[in-house]
Simulated scan of single mutants.
Amino acid sequence: MSEVEFQTPQSYSPEDIQQILHLALARRNDQEELSREQLWEIAAELEIEPLSLVAAEQEWLKQKALTKKRLEFTQFRRSQWKQKAVRYVIVNSFLLFLNLLSAGTLSWSLYILLLWGLGLSLEGLKTFQTQGEAYEQAFQRWQFKNEMKESMANLWQRLKKAWQS
């Protein structure tokens, strides 16, 4: 087998430059974080305008905050589903025991177990799906609801302060 030789291109697209610099920074031996000052120096060496850098940094911060919110939403949905699953196990264990104790066999409790289990399974499928239009709509509703809670809490705090003054 012969190795494939790669020719170094004379020019790169912005996406190629971004990928190459990302790989180079990832391979640094010291693996320490760069300061904001170092970021500005690198941008100056790459002849990136300060306004572009500030805009890019702001966009990055917004994306990072949105990613954090999505993670919180996913954790919230999963914890809600786990609570429902625990409730399912407890109630159905009781019903199975009650059915076995009263009839000596499992009969009517199996229908409840299967129907409730089907609903729980479908909800679990929706809960663990983290992409798509349905997920986006649920995330938007959750985010709106949380923003409303925060604004109401802030309003309540301001009213309490005003009342106390």
Rank of each mutant, 00 (worst) to 15 (best):
G104H: 08
Y111M: 09
Q31A: 06
R78H: 03
L115V: 06
Q38I: 02
A24D: 10
W108M: 07
L114R: 01
L100T: 12
Q63M: 10
V86F: 07
S11N: 03
L53H: 03
L46A: 15
K126A: 14
Y12L: 15
L120M: 09
L113T: 01
K84R: 15
F6C: 04
L71V: 02
N92A: 06
V91T: 09
L120E: 05
L98T: 07
I20T: 02
V86H: 08
Q18R: 14
R77L: 15
E41H: 06
Q18M: 09
A65W: 03
S2A: 09
I17L: 14
P9D: 05
S121T: 11
L46M: 14
E47T: 12
S107D: 08
R27Q: 10
Q31K: 13
E49L: 06
I17A: 07
L114D: 00
T105I: 11
E5C: 03
G124V: 01
R70W: 03
L61Q: 14
V86I: 13
Y12Q: 05
G132Q: 13
P9I: 08
E15C: 04
N92L: 10
D16Q: 15
R70F: 02
N99D: 15
D30L: 08
K126I: 12
L23T: 07
E32Y: 05
R87G: 05
L46W: 07
V86N: 07
T130G: 01
N99L: 04
L51W: 05
E45S: 10
Q7K: 14
L113D: 00
Q80P: 00
K126T: 08
F73P: 01
E33S: 15
G119L: 01
L51I: 04
V54Q: 14
W108V: 10
E133K: 14
T130P: 00
R27K: 11
S11L: 03
G119I: 00
L113C: 00
Q7F: 11
Q75P: 00
H22Y: 14
F128S: 04
E5R: 10
W116H: 04
I42P: 01
L66H: 05
S79V: 10
A103L: 13
Q18P: 00
V91C: 06
R36H: 15
M1E: 13
L98M: 12
V89P: 00
L113W: 12
V4Y: 05
F76Q: 11
N29H: 09
